[in-house]
Amino acid sequence: MTDYKKRIKVLAVDDEYDLCWAFETRFKKEIFDIVTVRNGEAAIEMLKKNKYPIIILDSKLPGIDGFEAAKIIKIIDPDTYIIIFTGYYDREDKEIQEGLKSGLFYDFLCKPFEFDDVKRMIKKVIKENISKNS
């Protein structure tokens, strides 16, 4: 019974400080909590301590890149929904299509983006998947 009171944690991973700031500022008063980190290694460390059912993950990161980080995240927590967040690829690109088909990625978000789209994606995940399970 305690679960539904718990707010969903969303982790955004991007090496741009200003984008992290934007995520935190825009999603301060949402039904989910947003947490940001600047690289893949930090994201993995966070995941070891906490559960983040939704992760918005930049495809190009210093150190291990988004694709690699996504695979490690799925190993640590296969239930995590990863939204691949990129300015480098388009949805049609092979790398993205393969990730979507294999279930590595839940969805695709291209830079620049609409916060409303991000919110819709997150809510959809919560509604369709996480709420049912909990």
Binding site: D18, L19, A22, F23, G87, Y88, K111, P112, F113, F115
Partner: peptide
């Protein structure tokens, strides 16, 4: 493209 889309994403956000 990525280099330009990143600042665009910041501007837009």
């Amino acid at each position: 493209a990525h280099e330009i889309r990143n600042p665009l994403a910041i501007i837009d956000s």
